[in-house]
Amino acid sequence: MRAFPILEARQIVKELGQGEGKVQALKGVDLALYEGEFTLLMGPSGSGKTTLLSILGCLLTPTSGTLTLGGESVVHRSAEDLADLRRRHLGFIFQSYNLFPTLSALDNVRLGLDVRGFSSRECKERAAEALIEVGLGHRLKAYPGTLSGGEKQRVAIARAIAPEPPVILADEPTAALDTENGHAIMELLSCVARKNGRAVLAVTHDPRTIPFADRVIEIEDGIISGERKKHAATVIPARPRQPQAAHGTPAPYQERKRQAHA
């Protein structure tokens, strides 16, 4: 039996734009993340993955719905409160690494700790430990410009894990990497989840990453269209499909896939 979720989103709706240009990017999403679990959020472009990730990361406020993080409600919080929640509960890994080009690998990780108020000594020690943990103990003083794509993503992972947040959110962590580096990064994220008991959620397009995940959640047109656990043969529909034909929205991804196979 699973423990209580660290992060739980219920009936998340997000409307983007205004007036006639208004679109519903998320149409009532339910999602929960648990300790020690590596979850993938998959779906085609425009399905709402990034919007959902932004909301789960307390970077974007939902139009409606509830979000709890570490037992605290995230809704109706000020920007500074949200920043505080991110500091205490979240680590981020970005597709394009988002490293500071003027800082060494060690300083990039230190910076992530410094914003959280760790002491200078602790920042240095934890940063070095995190870089050693991701296999970059020999590249502490290297600048992002001299690192390979895989190494840069390892620095980003070190930055995310160094403060030991309970939840790590990764946006397309392997998109800019070759197969070998992509596998290595997914292994590392899987290890981060299992070894340290963190909830790791990675948004990805890349089907090669599926074997590394404990759970795969599929999203399409702003709704969760399916969820499968490790080694599960079929997709479990997450919730009954909503009527589509009335406004001409395409059928969910999994259903189209099934239809194609049939």
């Binding site: 920043a83 505080d84 205490r88 979240l90 981020f92 970005f94 992530g112 914003v115």
Partner: peptide, 16 residues
């Protein structure tokens, strides 16, 4: 700006 946004995403306060 992108770096400052990253800092903000990492949880830095505006004051930082």
């Amino acid at each position: 700006l992108a770096e400052f946004a990253t800092l903000r995403a990492l949880g830095s306060s505006s004051f930082y």
